[in-house]
Amino acid sequence: MGEFNIYGVYVPVFLIQAILAYVLLKIVSIGTDKIIEKGWIALPSIFNLCLYIILLWFMHWLFVLIFS
């Protein structure tokens, strides 16, 4: 994995994975916001950070699986 050439501009694969993971985080956070409002999660910011890291790992795993 390295980079994609999009119209002469080299875009790192990790940047694409990070953007896709962020979009997925925004979709998932619609459901998790209800849990946070009820008080089931003590530290919501750390929870969201960990959720983003898990989604980023999933996107990386998916790219490795598809493009290898």
Rank of each mutant, 00 (worst) to 15 (best):
I53L: 14
F4P: 00
G8Q: 03
V23T: 07
I41V: 15
L62E: 10
I6W: 06
I46N: 03
L51Q: 06
I54W: 02
I36C: 13
S68P: 03
I53P: 01
F63I: 14
V13F: 02
K38L: 15
I66W: 11
P44M: 01
L65Y: 08
I66A: 12
L15M: 09
L25W: 14
E3D: 15
S29E: 14
V13S: 02
L20D: 07
S68E: 08
W61G: 14
A18Y: 05
L24P: 04
I36D: 12
I66Q: 09
I35T: 09
L56W: 07
G39A: 09
I19Q: 08
I46M: 10
L56V: 03
K26P: 01
Y7S: 05
Y10F: 13
F47Q: 05
T32C: 01
I54L: 08
L55P: 02
N48H: 05
F14W: 09
I27W: 15
F63P: 02
K38A: 12
F63T: 14
G39V: 06
V64T: 11
P12L: 00
M59K: 06
A21C: 10
F58E: 01
S29W: 07
P44F: 02
M1H: 11
F47D: 01
I35P: 07
A42V: 09
E3K: 08
S68A: 06
F67S: 12
L24M: 14
N48K: 13
S68R: 09
A42Q: 15
L55Q: 00
S68L: 05
I16E: 00
F63C: 13
V64Q: 11
L25P: 10
S45F: 12
V13A: 08
T32G: 00
C50W: 11
Y7T: 01
I27V: 15
L20S: 08
V28D: 01
A42P: 04
V11Q: 01
V9N: 10
L24I: 11
K26E: 05
V64N: 11
L55M: 04
V9S: 10
L43D: 09
I36Q: 14
L56G: 02
Y52Q: 03
I36H: 13
K26G: 02
Y22Q: 07
N48C: 00
I54D: 01
S45C: 00
C50L: 13
F4Q: 06
G39D: 11
G2K: 12
W57L: 14
I54P: 00
M1K: 10
G39Q: 07
V64D: 12
G31V: 15
L51M: 13
L62I: 12
L25E: 10
N48L: 04
F47S: 00
L49W: 06
W57R: 10
A18T: 06
F14Q: 05
V28Y: 04
C50N: 14
I19D: 04
W40Y: 13
A42R: 15
Y7G: 02
I35M: 09
T32W: 04
E3P: 06
I66G: 03
I53E: 03
V13T: 09
P12F: 01
V23R: 11
F4T: 08
E37T: 13
I54G: 02
Y7N: 13
V13R: 05
D33M: 12
E3R: 04
I16P: 00
I19C: 07
K34W: 14
L65W: 11
I41F: 05
I54H: 00
L24Q: 14
L55A: 01
E37Q: 15
V9A: 11
F58T: 01
L43N: 11
